[in-house]
Design a binder for these strands. Structure first.
Ligand SMILES: NC(=O)c1ccc[n+]([C@@H]2O[C@H](COP(=O)([O-])OP(=O)(O)OC[C@H]3O[C@@H](n4cnc5c(N)ncnc54)[C@H](O)[C@@H]3O)[C@@H](O)[C@H]2O)c1
Ligand SMILES: NC(=O)c1ccc[n+]([C@@H]2O[C@H](COP(=O)([O-])OP(=O)(O)OC[C@H]3O[C@@H](n4cnc5c(N)ncnc54)[C@H](O)[C@@H]3O)[C@@H](O)[C@H]2O)c1
Lengths: 214, 214
DNA sequence: GCTATTTTGTGAATATATTCACATTAAAAA
DNA sequence: TTTTTAATGTGAATATATTCACAAAATAGC
């Protein structure tokens, strides 16, 4: 089965929209509906579903509840997920206070920092010394991590996470990290993404990142 | 000329690496060096350069200073860029305190919020009422924006930005935004990116997001 | 100055992703 | 019931991105 990261991301987006749609009482959707909502194409939507064996009803489209539960199952949203964050700085603070993760079953179980001043074991979630990372992660069997430390320590923190048992990370440090090939790294370089928009504006080229306005 | 967002992103990454390399005294690089540093391939690097008319020296590779200044020119890094942020919440606070933007010539000139408690015109950068956005942006001719408001107001804030003269945004609100086709929207859905890693871990499929470890 | 070697630059080949085109099917209408 | 209509599902076609393969050029060694 294909595993293209972007396809998975789209499936999550479909799910996202369905949750919203459900909340306003919508009962069934068409590939068209989803395409419109995401700025994609109906064929793309059906192709994505087809790829994962998700099937609808000819002429009647997709029953929302049914589709949603298929996506939930497929995307593993029926199980909760624990995550730790390395680095308790500005970005980590924003993530910690963001209620969206918990709502989606992702629980930040701890943060780790090497600055004693930033540590606070009484906080919820606890902010612990980086030395505790190994034991915490291996004991609690956490598999998901976020890297929010400065770039010059990111590789060493990643290595620590790997030996502790972390299986994949979302990395905010602006540097290329090396890891075994079965380890997942999703790089988020916020500054570069902003610079890219700045560049695109300056050179005012035709095709946008988005589709045209409806 | 091609404008693929991902190609541009890679050019910025090359530049990033060059700055780092320069700081440790490196004088010239090869497509190989860059590929290694970014987890890419030498051919990809040369293809990217070729696409933008960047040219090196056969056998001797690329002179670092020269390459860097070509990239700076190409990527518009010789001019400063002003940016505003809509929404002065947790994420905006992290962005505001991040010194990396200024270092790269991106100046956050103001934040805007509809919560009077969050506003603080004395702050540097000033946090202003959302009502001031239009005048501020059109007078100061700001073209770049960041959307850091809740999803349910994101479209209306974007519309406001567009009429004020903003030409492109980095959008953190987890929703698809509609805009004219010459307007650039770069969507950053942090939660979905984290959920995607969580999914990939669970299904432990072969090919990673990154290349194999060196 | 000649030769061997290394690296670039790029057209062609391949791989990947998206869109097209349409047969198939289910529902609605007649 | 039969026909019409509107949607899905998917192989084929196209578009896009990456890698291969190698000629051309510049340096280093002799
Ligand atoms: N804040 C942003 O808006 C932003 C934007 C783009 C990129 N980033 C990147 O995200 C990462 C985090 O950014 P931030 O703004 O939160 O930085 P920050 O400086 O506020 O936080 C970094 C934290 O990491 C901790 N730390 C340093 N070394 C450590 C170590 N060896 N072990 C454990 N903890 C350690 C520090 O004590 C600090 O609390 C950085 O790599 C930064 O470049 C941040
Ligand atoms: N914080 C995170 O880690 C995180 C992670 C993923 C996504 N996001 C997304 O980023 C966006 C911002 O997140 P946040 O955590 O900073 O949220 P937040 O609630 O801390 O901040 C949002 C800010 O927007 C302001 N606001 C609300 N309506 C407004 C309006 N009409 N005009 C101007 N300002 C208005 C609020 O007063 C608040 O200060 C949200 O869409 C969120 O879903 C945030």
């Amino acid at each position: 089965m294909r595993l293209a990261k972007q396809t998975i991301l789209r499936l999550f987006q479909y799910r996202e929209f369905l949750i919203l749609a459900k909340s306003i009482g919508i009962k069934n959707v068409y590939s068209d509906t989803l395409a419109e909502a995401l700025g994609s194409s109906a064929t793309q939507v059906r192709k994505d579903f087809s790829l994962f064996g998700i099937t609808g009803n000819k002429r009647a489209g997709y029953q929302l509840d049914d589709l949603l539960s298929q996506l939930n199952e497929l995307l593993g949203k029926n199980e909760k997920q624990k995550v730790i964050i390395a680095g308790a700085g500005n970005l980590a603070k924003a993530l910690m206070q963001y209620e969206g993760f918990k709502k989606e079953g992702i629980e930040i179980v701890a943060l780790f920092d090497n600055d004693p001043v930033k540590c606070d074991p009484q906080n919820d979630p606890p902010i612990l010394p980086i030395e505790d990372l190994y034991n915490f992660v291996s004991e609690k069997q956490v598999e998901l991590g976020v890297i929010a430390v400065p770039y010059y320590v990111a590789q060493q923190i990643l290595d620590l996470m790997i030996v502790a048992g972390i299986k994949g990370v979302l990395n905010f440090a602006p540097i290329y990290l090396k890891a075994p090939k079965d380890f997942f790294i999703n790089d988020m370089n916020l500054r570069l993404e902003l610079e890219t928009v700045a560049y695109l504006i300056k050179t005012r080229t035709k095709a946008g990142v988005h589709k045209e306005s409806s």
